[in-house]
């Protein structure tokens, strides 16, 4: 028998010790969706033939929406800072070992590249909407560089998607997060949610269909990586094994995490099932027109993916803070 008497040290006994809360969850979720969207719309824009240049951009609104999503996400991490007025200090140095420093520099870099992408894909007939003459001129110049900018945004999207996971996995003190599969899991879920978001916002039927197909692979990959993530922790040493306990106990105080895991394994396979149904229905006899109910079904499946991604991130952020490397 071992009994330890101490001023409580975890978020369950003293909620003020919960260091990262819903604001970080929203940041990680929105950052992931934005990263996935950048990668996915770059794939769509790079798939089509190299010329004529003017007709290149297939995925036009996605970069703008990804920009807004990331900007809102960044706002949430700023309001999470204890002293946002000191943020300037983050830009007076770069600390290569600090993932926060990578984020401090990385997120504005992604936003900048994303802004160029928005201008590069504006269709000729819509350029007047930019209003400011210098933006119109810049847009004209960037259009011919669209492919290069799309490649840059693809790479930065991968960086942002994986960064959200590496940020958590860099904390050796937190066994649930300190796992090399977490960045992969976050990347795959970011790509999947990005594909889902594009399915929702796309007007072109071929884009909706393309990303429904891509998302099938991504959901399968995500489910496999989730299993690997838990298996890696289960086969590890005591603190790591303890870290996944909340996910596998319906009777404990933390049953909410078991519920989250169940929800993920209901939502994602359901989305997969619906998408596979769509694939079977449309493949071969797809003529580029969907009915309203078919679009509704596609959007519903995409919504399930987004909900699954959000629950996954929220559960990992909160559950991680329940177990530290020390036994109390």
């Amino acid at each position: 028998m071992t009994e330890i008497t101490i001023t409580g040290l975890n978020a369950i006994t003293h909620p003020y010790l919960e260091v990262w809360d819903w604001r970080i969850v929203i940041y990680l979720f929105l950052g992931g969706v934005s990263a996935g969207m950048l990668v996915m719309c770059s794939i769509a824009n790079l798939r089509i033939p190299k010329h004529p240049v003017e007709e290149l951009a297939q995925c036009v609104r996605a970069p703008l929406i990804a920009f807004v999503i990331l900007a809102v996400g960044a706002l949430f991490i700023i309001i999470d800072l204890g002293k946002p007025q000191s943020l300037i200090w983050g830009y007076l140095t770069f600390q290569p070992l600090s993932l926060m420093s990578w984020g401090t520099w990385g997120v504005p870099a992604v936003l900048l590249a994303n802004a160029l992408y928005i201008l590069a894909v504006v269709p000729k007939e819509d350029r007047h909407r930019l209003r400011l003459p210098f933006l119109i001129k810049l847009s004209e110049k960037l259009t011919s560089k669209m492919r290069t900018i799309a490649k840059l945004n693809f790479a930065l999207g991968i960086f942002l998607g994986i960064y959200t996971g590496v940020l958590l996995s860099s904390f050796a003190a937190i066994p649930l997060w300190n796992n090399a599969t977490l960045p992969i899991l976050f990347l795959v879920s970011a790509l999947s949610s990005g594909a889902a978001m594009i399915v929702i916002i796309a007007k072109k039927y071929e884009i909706k269909f393309l990303f429904t197909k891509i998302d099938i692979w991504l959901i399968v990959a995500e489910l496999i990586v989730i299993l690997l993530f838990f298996y890696a922790l289960y086969t590890s040493t005591a603190p790591y094994k303890k870290a996944i306990e909340p996910f596998f106990s319906l009777t404990s105080e933390q049953f909410i995490f078991a519920m989250a895991l169940i929800a993920i394994f209901l939502l994602l396979p359901l989305a997969l099932r619906i998408k596979l149904g769509e694939l079977k229905e449309f493949e071969g006899e797809f003529h580029g027109e969907f009915t309203k109910s078919q679009i509704l079904r596609m959007n519903f499946a995409a919504g399930l993916v987004l909900a699954g991604t959000f629950i996954l991130r929220a559960a990992i952020v909160y559950a991680g803070q329940l177990t530290k490397l020390s036994p109390y």
Partner: peptide, 19 residues
């Protein structure tokens, strides 16, 4: 003065020494 309150150090400490 330089601390921005990102709380990364609090999470990084294996000893729960920070708040």
């Amino acid at each position: 003065v330089k601390c921005i309150g990102c709380k990364a150090c609090i999470l990084a400490c294996p000893y729960d020494a920070r708040y």
